[in-house]
């Protein structure tokens, strides 16, 4: 069995959920490098899409894991403004220490995630519907509470230098520090999904929830934890944006819902669950960010960006389907080169 370690490279490549998204990323990058010219390839060009990718990536990662586990969370669309408003109201409006503000924002994320998780697990209502409900509920709550507490829908916040350095400054004037948080999150989620046994649980839950439960996996606990993860991550993105831009608005973040889902799907995660990778989610996020920002470096009208994203999404899904079929069909040539 010693030859087990020497696998044909093709099989391993095909079996990876991110193979399709890697091709997509390369295509998109080459496209914009050609049409965007030197500015796109420069450091500021890279910063423009990396900054977009970082905030989006931090929410796309837990959304991706949820999707691999067969669930969906669209309440992030109002969890991001909830996170910014929480930190701005607590630390900006009421002048509480920034740690209290950050703690409040993350705690709200955890609570909303917990509610999402418990509702999905207990009621067996599809998570799309449950989180659609909390999306609106949280948006209304944030708007109502902001007006009651501060009398406005936009609150300023002046964070101290430590908080600024950690969460909201531009490295070298161009790269958001959020990029490092994104890298850290990707490493953490990558470890959980691909190296820890919890990853196996998540994949199994997405594959067949009933069998997973019968095999002894605490599916309810894992589902609730995953929803809490996405709530906390969305709140984190919200609070770091508030600290970065020194202010928070009630209505910012709805675009994240679909952008995160697009990134995850382009990254090779199967919408119905059971298949996907963290590398794929990261590549999908970068692809999305490059299309989103790259258009400004080309001579094209920026209005075309949505068209490209739409076509890209369809192509990505088709390509990922093809690769998945190849992965299923692939087995090393039998009876040859075996000793």
């Amino acid at each position: 069995m010693s030859n087990q370690t020497r696998r044909p490279a093709l099989g391993n490549l095909l079996r990876r959920p991110e193979t399709g998204s890697l091709l997509g990323l390369v295509t998109v990058f080459v496209f914009f490098a050609v049409f965007g010219g030197a500015d796109f390839a420069s450091a500021t060009g890279a910063a423009s899409w990396l900054n977009v990718a970082a905030s989006l990536g931090i929410v796309a990662l837990p959304i991706g894991l949820l999707m691999i586990a067969g669930e969906l969370d669209i309440s992030i669309g109002s969890m991001i403004p909830a996170g910014s408003m929480a930190v701005a109201i607590v630390s900006g409006h009421f002048h509480a220490p920034i740690l209290v503000g950050i703690g409040t924002a993350l705690a709200i994320g955890a609570v909303v995630g917990f509610i999402n998780g418990v509702l999905v697990v207990r009621t067996a209502v599809p998570s799309f519907i449950v989180t659609l409900g909390t999306l609106f509920a949280v948006a209304g709550l944030v708007l109502g509470l902001s007006v009651i507490l501060t009398g406005t829908t936009s609150v300023g916040i002046k964070a101290g230098p430590e908080a600024k350095w950690l969460l909201g400054h531009f490295i070298g004037g161009t790269f958001q520090v959020t990029i490092f948080w994104w890298i850290a999150a990707a490493l953490l989620f990558g470890f959980v999904l691909h190296y820890s046994h919890y990853g196996n649980w998540i994949l199994a839950m997405g594959g067949d929830k009933v069998s997973a439960r019968n095999a002894g996996i605490p599916t309810e606990r894992v589902t609730i934890l995953l929803f809490m993860c996405s709530g906390v991550s969305a709140a984190f993105v919200g609070l770091s944006q508030a600290i970065l831009y020194n202010s928070a608005q009630v209505s910012a973040g709805q675009s994240y819902i679909f952008n995160a889902i697009i990134s995850v799907v382009v990254g090779g995660v199967l919408l119905t669950g059971g298949y996907g990778s963290v590398v794929g989610i990261v590549l999908g996020t970068i692809t999305f960010a490059i299309v989103n920002q790259g258009i400004y470096y080309t001579g094209f009208d920026a209005n075309w960006a949505s068209l490209i994203i739409g076509i890209l999404l369809l192509l990505a899904v088709l390509m990922n389907n093809t690769f998945r079929k190849l992965a299923l069909a692939y087995s090393p040539a039998r009876g040859k080169s075996r000793t």
Binding site: N200, W201, A204, G207, G216, L328
Partner: peptide
Amino acid sequence: GTFPLMSIGRSFFVGEEPKKGWGPFKIL
């Protein structure tokens, strides 16, 4: 096999994964 998109090794051990390493860094 009820997990068609999992590898043979992973699906074989669903719920009973063999681990190595220590503490929170135990890996599959």
